[in-house]
Design a protein around this nucleic acid. Sequence first.
DNA 1: ATGTATGCAAAACATTTGCACCTGG
DNA 2: CCAGGTGCAAATGTTTTGCATACAT
Lengths: 135, 135
Amino acid sequence: METPDLKKVGLKATLPRLRILQLLEHNRQRHFTAEEVYKALLETGEDVGLATVYRVLTQFEAAGLVVRHHFEGGLSVFELNEGYHHDHLVCTKCGKIVEFIDEIIEQRQLAIAQEKGFEIVEHCLYIYGICLECR
Amino acid sequence: METPDLKKVGLKATLPRLRILQLLEHNRQRHFTAEEVYKALLETGEDVGLATVYRVLTQFEAAGLVVRHHFEGGLSVFELNEGYHHDHLVCTKCGKIVEFIDEIIEQRQLAIAQEKGFEIVEHCLYIYGICLECR
DNA sequence: ATGTATGCAAAACATTTGCACCTGG
DNA sequence: CCAGGTGCAAATGTTTTGCATACAT
């Protein structure tokens, strides 16, 4: 299943790429920093370099396979692009991330961009807060 | 006008702080990276260090005088906190920034956070697009 | 085979920090 | 005067890049 995805976007099906894609696809955790991906692979005995993780994630982003987020603190977080856009609620205490999508907000964004003469390329909405468990 | 602001938040009215505040207050440009603030001050003949710019901006942020944004590319951008929250449209070609506020979006955010059990600390919405002039 | 991908180490950035010196109140 | 602020240089943390080697097709 993963290999065709890679070929489809013009990337050779190399081991590091397959491993990274697998990790992103088959994991309860959906959001990873490059460092987290790197450590997770090392733990499973894969011998990959951090530089390769960055290179692969960047290629995946360019290919539309993953989405890169810039959360507070300047850290990049990557997640698999499941094809549907969504926004994020981030707990500032435990780091928990909840995804959501709101059609009303989406529509308002389109209307605002149009009103201001912008052609939307992308948009992201981050709500930072404290989740139930952390209060 | 600026001095009282600084005193009010418990910061000594030192030259670098005054200069940085002035720059943020009296300028057509409203959004600056630390580097831009630094260069702007050097150009006006001020002898400040980049480290001080970062320190002062961070203090201003803690004091609520400025807001720090994490735009795409991982760059931090600072703007004066005029007291009212607003969101941003950013042109991915020329970097132009347009501010906006939409009550419907604000309300939806509150509703979503409540629904998911989050107590909102802050939130930011960035719409990246291409502005009229760049098309 | 052969062009591309990788790992490693070094470079490039953005940001922070340690420390001796300076300055505002 | 003296606590706090500053400039400089060095440290940090993240991401990128150069290059010789290894791999997929």
